[in-house]
Design a protein around this nucleic acid. Structure first.
Lengths: 220, 220
DNA sequence: TAGATTGTTAATCGATTAACAATC
DNA sequence: TAGATTGTTAATCGATTAACAATC
């Protein structure tokens, strides 16, 4: 990270998408690309790409463009996709087990190392190669294994308490799928991603209604 | 929708969160709230709340505040949570079946009415009260039932083709969980939500790395 | 009425885009 | 070298916050 200023959240949010598109280019055997060409592919402006990348350093070459493989490596390093952060999943219901099985954690700098559920019947079940443990074992597990990411797929009411407990146990990042909003402000040094699939679906519904409204009165 | 100007995306993205918090207030038996109090709860500014709400109309009462139930109703109507949009799910793998079973579609203005998977072995299985059908029946189903929302939980390679086909069949909104980025720009009148769970996880990892970096050199 | 709080305008802040000199 | 494209500064645009008059 060659520059010393704080990187804005808008920029950081775009990095994973750059990383993905560069991976695709690599798969297609494309070795170099200009900001203009990449912008075209990604439906963004070339200016934005150059600005974003220059927050971290001069990864390009004037008159030439960017080396795809190299740039992807740089962005990957910034994001930390080569790390091996220990992650635990709390809640092995429908969504929890899908996340356990469906995601390729290694690609995103993490490793799923523990799954916990309050339902004793699930004890011992294997999901995504990891055994489900009862909640009673959560604390001792965390003390021993020091997970720094916790994925929450639990009911809303259980979330605040578990969130607090895990924070005390040293968790540094919450990937929260519960209906509870984890308030980032009370947790200095902790990164929070409140996913809220319902919000995302409502946004879609708004879009549908809105489109219909403008169809009805297209005078604008 | 009393005002006639285009509502910015930033505002629309915040509406579901307002809707959620107002629902919580209602559950707690709170009947009125000021922008200041709501702002406090949501960790935003009161100014932002008032600006956002006034995009749609004057829902408050000067000197008093907002009626919680009424305001929630208004925002719900704007979002369209009382609609009954027909939705289909393509892909009944781990993530697909979790979404089928886990989400309360009725709360978000939708109804799951069809599930399709290329794996013939899943044919006839019931998920979230809906039967899984083979892909061969997709077209006739759409012609008959006219779904307007499609949830895509399919491999990246299959996505572009299915997306195009569904657009032709009248789908107006994509909730896309595949690793393919649906390009909104080619689809006028269609709303697209590319979810990308992997991006979300990488954002978390960045946060962890970043926090660690600032721990190491805390001179800022 | 007096106090409170909205609705709305104005000021600020930050993010995006445009432009162009530097340079490969 | 000439052409191309970056890195970076300046201009624009949009979103957020502050301030306050309107009004319940």
């Amino acid at each position: 990270m060659s520059k010393n200023e704080k990187i804005s959240n808008s920029v950081i949010r775009r990095l994973p998408r750059y990383y993905r598109f560069l991976g695709e280019l690599l798969n297609e055997g494309i070795t170099k690309i200009s900001s203009r060409e990449l912008a075209e592919r990604m439906s963004v402006t070339a200016s934005q790409i150059r600005q974003d990348l220059n927050c971290f350093g001069g990864f390009g070459q004037q008159g030439y463009g960017y080396n795809v493989s190299e740039l992807r490596g740089e962005i990957g390093a910034i994001l930390g996709v080569n790390e091996d952060h220990a992650a635990i999943l709390i809640g092995a219901g429908n969504l929890g087990r899908a996340l356990a099985v469906h995601l390729d954690y290694g690609r995103y700098g993490c490793r799923l190392c523990g799954i916990f559920d309050s339902n004793e019947n699930l004890k011992g079940e294997i999901l995504g190669g990891v055994k489900v443990s009862p909640m009673s074992e959560l604390e001792s597990f965390c003390i021993k294994n020091k997970p720094i990411i916790a994925m929450l797929c639990i009911p809303k009411d259980a979330a605040p308490e578990i969130c607090e407990k895990l924070t005390e146990l040293g968790v540094k990042a919450f990937w929260n799928f519960s209906h509870y909003d984890i308030p980032q402000k009370n947790l200095p040094g902790v990164t929070v991603e409140n996913v809220h699939l319902g919000d995302s679906l409502m946004y879609l519904c708004y879009g549908i209604n809105d489109k219909r409204a403008s169809d009805e009165k297209p005078e604008n």
